[in-house]
Design a binder for these strands. Structure first.
Lengths: 347, 347
DNA sequence: GCTGTTTCTGTTAACGTACACGGAAACTAT
DNA sequence: ATAGTTTCCGTGTACGTTAACAGAAACAGC
């Protein structure tokens, strides 16, 4: 079995030196046309691929990746992203990657600004961030572009072409999937309720898109379907009571779609609704429990842990391996979680 | 920002040389107790992790991984595994991994024996294989153990403790999931048909397990459920007619579970069965089309491409990085595919 | 005191690539 | 013809780790 071709071999075969071959590989000029073409030819014939290990060792750079994400506690939505990041920290440690974490509070934009400034001060080579604070993020990205800071975006479906990679899940299609599942549970259904439980002062575009998707699925059916969107803030003290009223006021109700991760907040209003199909979002611990107890039927999983890990992986490949992704957008598949699938979603 | 600790640094701090530090790292003995403890202490304090690049470069080994799998054409089940392997070939090329493919024909066990012998002759460092020919595989694995050939198993749920990694999906749980989906589609259903379309002379244990799982789900319900298992060989010329008769003879039929990838073979018997829930296995191109046309409701996806890729990745980590997996069994999550999810399963 | 053995330690040459440096050769301008 | 410039090329060192090797130090047996 022949050994893998190296620069040295190519130098020998082309009657040049490794310096010249190296210049050809990196397009660094200062090579005669005849030598260049000859070397390129030989490389192609031997199917030469640079040895990644030697390459990285010679470069011997330690890359610093900043991760900018909302502060969270265990069991909360953002914490699942953090879990993916934590795994990547140990996985990439021996590969010359240092990951710096920068937290901020979603309801205090000042903390976002402070953290994001620190990202620059610490001289990171790239930053991974979550496009949740739309306005602040756009300003931050502008700054990244000015300062030539590489960045990757996670959890959004609106992509930025300058990002190394955009990783997100299609919210519109998620809404369609929820509709499909609810419809499959009772093909004769005609009355649906969509819950938009929003955080005070925080307009979430993705949730809007999900609701649009949900509607679009039923709009394609032949019969007339009645879909009511009920919007309420999660800070509302009478959340459960108001929802109970809403549900009881519609005795013909066939299905409920909770368009974000807040299913667990309305649990008490959903008990004893066996005849209604219920689909929620995100496999938080509390949501999974509702699934396990049969109170809801499905959860749509956004794979946050995997998204975060993948984000780091792409930045690593870009920084260390010089690999640019074929496409700068990764559409994370919608994942359907039912009771019988719960075993795969242990914390 | 302090640089990453190296062997050299540790040698300096412990007043020894890199040789001694190296011996401590690799437990190669020949180190005085006092030095060993001191060096271990310093490594712990500095949180030392060996530089993977330098390590692999110094070892400078090219590992050969054999992949033993059934010959297949595009669109066939086994071809999806091959796709994952092909991706890994290019991904791991620059990391010192050569992947050799060995094909065999499922219905000619002689070809398996021939190919598997070749695996040894070519002096591979490890082999990845699919536990489909139960008897031949067990003989081959015995030989692997004798000759100290590392191996990884894919696509099975029966694990071998000596394997570097076992990757598979739980067929029993898959059957339960199929039952759950069918049940959700019509909670009042009581009559179900399970199709076991087997290859002549090829007893597939996994399919049996799926059927057991399917039954177990309904056995837990309070009411009496009627489940008929219809077994037929795929070579049967009257396959479709026999199935049509079977379906028509049971006017109360509520759901059908096709327990393997052969859903597309019985397509003609399934047309115009809108009131029956139908769940099949595996996202072959022809099966996906049935999903798209609304003829069936769900497919359970085994993620063959991902399984194959992961198998190579584990072997790589084991061979090159000396990493032993925390657990030698990876339970691939069951993936539910519906019409609205089809976009994620492009070929 | 002299060998021979055991125990321990430091040195050194790879591994393949990146890049700086010095300098040879060819060409230009006067 | 000579000095200056441009074009091109090879050498050498570094990156962190591995593993072979040489050899110092301590100790045993006589």
């Amino acid at each position: 079995m022949k050994a893998k071709p190296t620069i040295k071999l190519i130098a020998k075969l082309s009657n040049t030196s490794i310096g010249t071959v190296d210049r050809v590989i990196h397009n660094r000029g200062d090579v005669s046309q005849i030598n260049r073409e000859n070397i390129e030819q030989i490389m192609k014939e031997l199917d030469y691929v640079p040895n990644t290990f030697a390459r990285s060792l010679a470069l011997n750079k330690i890359f610093k990746i900043a991760v900018l994400l909302p502060k969270s506690k265990k069991g909360e939505y953002w914490n699942y992203y953090l879990m993916g990041i934590k795994k990547s920290i140990s996985d990439f440690k021996s590969l010359g990657i240092i990951i710096n974490l920068y937290f901020y509070h979603l309801d205090k934009t000042i903390t976002f600004n402070k953290s994001s400034n620190q990202v620059f001060k610490d001289e990171n080579d790239a930053v991974l961030l979550f496009t949740i604070l739309t306005y602040e993020t756009s300003i931050f990205l502008k700054k990244c572009k000015e300062k030539k800071m590489h960045f990757a975006l996670i959890g959004s479906h609106e992509k930025d072409n300058d990002a190394i990679i955009n990783i997100g899940q299609d919210p519109y299609q998620g809404g369609r999937l929820a509709a499909e599942l609810i419809n499959y549970g009772n093909k004769k259904g005609e009355n649906y309720l969509v819950l938009n439980i929003l955080k005070l002062g925080n307009l979430n575009l993705r949730v809007i898109n999900r609701i649009e998707g949900f509607k679009s699925f039923f709009a394609e059916r032949s019969k007339a379907i009645n879909i009511e969107v009920f919007t309420i803030t999660q800070e509302d003290d009478n959340l459960v009571d108001k929802l109970k009223n809403k549900i009881n006021s519609n005795p013909k109700l066939n299905g409920i779609f909770i368009a974000n991760s807040k299913t667990y907040m309305v649990k008490d209003a959903l008990l004893d609704k066996n005849d209604i199909q219920i689909v929620g979002y995100d496999t938080l611990k509390k949501n999974k429990e509702l699934l396990n107890r049969g109170i809801i039927d499905f959860l749509i999983h956004q794979q946050p842990t995997e998204q975060a890990y993948q984000g780091i992986e792409f930045l690593y490949r870009f920084l260390v391996m010089n690999e640019t992704p074929l496409t700068n957008f990764i559409d994370i598949p919608l994942d359907i979680v039912s009771k019988e699938k719960l075993m795969y979603y242990k914390e």
